[in-house]
Design a protein around this nucleic acid. Structure first.
Lengths: 89, 89
DNA sequence: CCAAAATGTCAAGTATATTTTACATTTTTA
DNA sequence: TAAAAATGTAAAATATACTTGACATTTTGG
């Protein structure tokens, strides 16, 4: 056999363009207004701290069920918390 | 080598319990009220017909960006179209 | 100042949403 | 009633959301 490079088991391939939505939201603002830490909010929403960090930063968007829990928790509508740009995605 | 069964490359394992949210929605009703086919709605939302079928049937729930497009398309709020049970998920 | 708490980052794994393809069944209509 | 359109089903691949664990940096308070 030759000595070429073999890459096996690649699961995730980074992809460019399409920018993954990155919709903004008011979660950090709302969380701080209630004097909560990321960890406390995560607990209240039954997700991990990493999830709160990622969503606050806009790394990815919450699922619909999670967006709903967030809205209920802060007593506002989903649409008033998440900011969808015109183009949307 | 023996003659045992070897299973390689298993990617998705079905899992039971936890019932995957299955939140209901009024999409089929709203779509029909507008006299649209699943294919036409899919086109308007920039998704495939399979996605419309799965979401109408509650096989899985829409992502937040898609839920938003659906709400805008039908001129209603996300919360008025998707029905979250108390327990949520 | 310095220790603790809070926040951020990275990587790999699992779960869920969406696409693609192909075919089967039901409903509509000419 | 037969063809066409609409709807359903299933499987495999890809994309995105979420978890877990471990460690680095920043902020806060005694």
């Amino acid at each position: 056999m030759g000595d070429g490079v073999i890459i096996e088991n690649v699961k995730h391939v980074l992809h460019f363009g399409k920018e993954a939505a990155k919709l903004k939201n008011r979660i950090r603002e709302l969380r701080r207004a209630m004097g909560l830490t990321q960890d406390e909010l995560a607990g209240a929403l039954s997700v991990t701290r990493q999830t709160v960090i990622a969503i606050e930063k806009g790394t990815y968007c919450a699922s619909l069920p999670l967006a709903h829990r967030i809205a209920v928790f802060f007593g506002e509508s989903i649409e008033s918390i998440f900011i969808f740009d015109e183009e949307d995605q």
